[in-house]
Design a protein around this nucleic acid. Structure first.
Lengths: 191, 191
DNA sequence: CTTAATATGTACAGATCGGTAAACTTTATT
DNA sequence: AATAAAGTTTACCGATCTGTACATATTAAG
């Protein structure tokens, strides 16, 4: 079994957790959906929570890689990339299996701030925040920390809204808002 | 049993669902936490989902009443109220038992768009959106629908961020962003 | 071919899940 | 006091939950 069966398990489990939720997904369902026996699962991961953590790690890597690459394709200046992030969001929202942000959902289901799953989700958002703040600084914003935080606010608001109203429209409103905030932070005059 | 035992049940159940989540809260836990027998519960509500719906209805009423009153206390112009909403959020974030938005969490746990619980959560957000859009229109915004949607984006982003980083700070960044967007929508010059 | 690692199916334990049945107690009204 | 509504306790159902035991099959390397 050289072709990594463990990674395959995590990848499939990620799909199911994302689609159906964490508590709503039992290990028996995972046996069926992943094609991996329960015995093997518990040989790779001591508990269900450990498997969830592995799935979240994979999600973190996949999402960030996709997002950063997509943004880099669309723009090559810091200002441009800050705005392009919202176009990338819009594309994401239109995907068939789009179900919102896995990390927001993880925090919804594991609410204690000191829970490992909660903390891992928080780490993902922290990394995104640092990336956005870095772009804000590179763009020359007056208060990069504030602008970066605001960009993240808009993104998360757009994600939540897109799920609630079942539409990709919030990505556009968020992009327009981001443009105004960016112009203001760079000292440009509003139209 | 005149003093409405049913309302008491819903109110207590709301607390527990908000604190621990929906799937993570079993009916047996509710028996202990609410002091109401399981038989009585199932006399009032045919299923657990029905009880969840009742809890969400109560939450919807409570939250909107609190929010609207608090905002009205803080400001009496449409522009002022749009901004004051973020001060109200900040107060909410500082509450001891603050656990984020119950409706976002409901949608996280009941993801199918046609699920009654999902739809009820969506209705709550829709009402808030209409309220914000109304304020935007009354304030004389160029595009009230867009501005209202953006205010909601910022609010939801602030809620999610406040949970993830376990801090009330996002309310301030959201307020600052809202001020910039409002000024721009009203045709004011940025600083 | 042998060995050791890694997979598998099946069966199960003990707890908990949502939900029900039946007999009993409390309460408010007449 | 009699009655009916509403609440309670206790016990239970079948299903599902996380997690384990055990015996067997597949695989890769020496």
């Amino acid at each position: 079994m050289r072709p990594n069966k463990k990674d395959e398990l995590v990848s499939k489990a990620l799909e199911v957790f994302y689609r159906d939720g964490f508590h709503a997904t039992g290990m028996d369902k995972l046996v069926v959906e992943t094609g991996v026996s329960k015995t093997s699962m518990y040989k790779h991961f001591r508990t269900k929570d450990d498997l969830i953590l592995a799935a979240l790690e994979l999600r973190d890597r996949n999402f960030r890689e996709w997002f950063l690459n997509r943004v880099a394709e669309m723009a090559d200046t810091p200002e441009g990339q800050l705005i392009a992030g919202f176009d990338a969001l819009a594309e994401w929202f239109e995907e068939d299996n789009y179900r919102g942000c896995m990390f927001i959902k993880a925090c919804s289901e594991f609410q204690e701030a000191d829970h490992p799953i909660h903390q891992q989700a928080a780490r993902h958002k922290q990394i995104l925040l640092e990336h956005l703040t870095g772009l804000a600084k590179a763009a020359g914003a007056k208060d990069p920390d504030c602008l970066g935080s605001q960009m993240l606010l808009l993104k998360e608001g757009a994600i939540v809204s897109s799920v609630l109203i079942n539409s990709g429209a919030p990505a556009r409103d968020a992009k327009a808002a981001a443009q105004v905030l960016l112009d203001q932070a760079l000292g440009h005059q509003a139209a």
